[in-house]
Design a protein around this nucleic acid. Structure first.
Lengths: 231, 231
DNA sequence: GAAGTAATGTGTGTTTTTTACACGAAGTCA
DNA sequence: TGACTTCGTGTAAAAAACACACATTACTTC
């Protein structure tokens, strides 16, 4: 070790796996950016960047998300820290990975501001990723699956008003298995976290569907009491 | 590493929450070391230390564990990364926390080699901890609870041969709730991960208990097939 | 305005899982 | 041989999970 500090320093980055859901195609998506610089120039990569000395990890993740993709106010949670010695060809870089869930409203905003070209890809059809980002993505997807099963985070991927069918499609794409309509509705509604709205979702040539919204206040209350929200 | 850094560097540490289980007292325990240096001199803290440039995070955690506590071959898993700006009064230090599960056999070894005095504390009665280690510990305990519920990690805290009552006591101390003996045994045995031994555990003035061992091979097989091991 | 189309919304019976619960058996010690 | 302590076991009731089909509503087209 030949450094002048008393301890070795590592370059610290945050990388974000940003999930979105396309209701029309019922497809889970990830936001990627195309790298403008070497290494991995022109490759697709997770949005991310270096952590500044005066900001926490969470702040860094949120800042990068805003800078690179113009997303804000999203669900954001630390995922795992990747510290293989040679994951960056330049030098030792340790990356704290986060995953984020975004509502469709934010998507367009994201897609429009491409300093470095940002695009949504369906998770089932990703391009090759830079660095160890494929591994990070896989970890994130696994975590999302686990999370969705036990906590009501699905709403973070839908617009504020949504139908039960939309919600079911979301669960189906994330979990990768079809669900029974009646049983799904029964269970979701039993948690008492959805409030039916007066409005309906009218679209196309068929019966309009009831719209719901998620009740975050009620969720906090129930969570405190230790309720579970298994689907 | 060069002297002129294009990006800010952070000092990177690993900290380990080492769990042990005292079967005789049915108490979950944590291994702490007493700090010999400022800051927090003479305070109790989690074992840990700086990550070297040529080692991965996992390697660093394992090395620190061996150096400071003489433990090896334990279950070790990354927990969470703590990156509050001022968590270390000296300078910016980001810590990747791990949690470890150790078998009783290792305990004595650990207790004996105290360069810096290492001691086991029952989790219900911890001294004040240095830095943000109390928060790290709380995170680890919550994780352990979650993990135990869905994966067979309890065996990591017991000797290679154990009785079902010992296992039950372990679950009870970690989960913090009493369990029904018959239902517990039924469920544990239904997973088909325990093999009964010829020997029995004879102790004190009563009927000896059947000894079991965990079957890691069978576990790997079942895990691959996607089986769950909920308790 | 009648008929066709497409997605919504709803209930019940069956199976599986979870829970609650008590007592004889086996060994030690005096 | 009697007292003591922990071990090991089964069943019935309740709850949860699962499988499953059809009438309703709105729009479109003829």
């Amino acid at each position: 070790m030949k450094h002048t500090y008393e301890y070795p320093r590592a370059a610290l980055t945050v990388d974000c796996v940003v999930f979105g859901f396309d209701s029309t195609q019922a497809a889970l998506q990830v936001l990627l950016i195309r790298r403008g610089l070497a290494p991995f120039k022109d490759h697709w990569a997770l949005p991310g960047g270096f952590v500044r000395v005066e900001e926490t990890l969470d702040e860094a993740a949120r800042r990068e998300l805003e800078e690179e993709t113009n997303l804000s106010t999203v669900f954001l949670e630390q995922l795992y820290t990747f510290g293989t010695v040679d994951r960056d060809p330049r030098e030792r870089v340790v990356s704290v990975a986060y995953y984020a869930l975004t509502k469709p409203a934010d998507h367009t905003t994201a897609a429009s501001t491409d300093a470095a070209e940002a695009r949504w890809f369906p998770v089932s059809d990703l391009p090759p990723l830079a660095f160890d980002h494929a591994e990070i993505f896989a970890t994130a997807l696994a975590r999302l699956r686990g999370k969705l099963r036990y906590e009501p985070v699905g709403f973070e991927l839908l617009p504020p008003k949504f139908t039960l069918t939309q919600l079911q499609r979301l669960y189906e794409s994330v979990l990768g298995a079809p669900l029974d309509k009646r049983n799904f509705r029964k269970k979701v509604l039993s948690h008492d976290l959805l409030v039916p709205l007066k409005e309906t979702h009218r679209e196309g040539t068929h019966r309009p569907a009831q719209l719901f919204r998620f009740d975050p206040v009620r969720y906090e209350k129930l969570k405190k009491k230790g309720f579970l929200f298994e689907i």
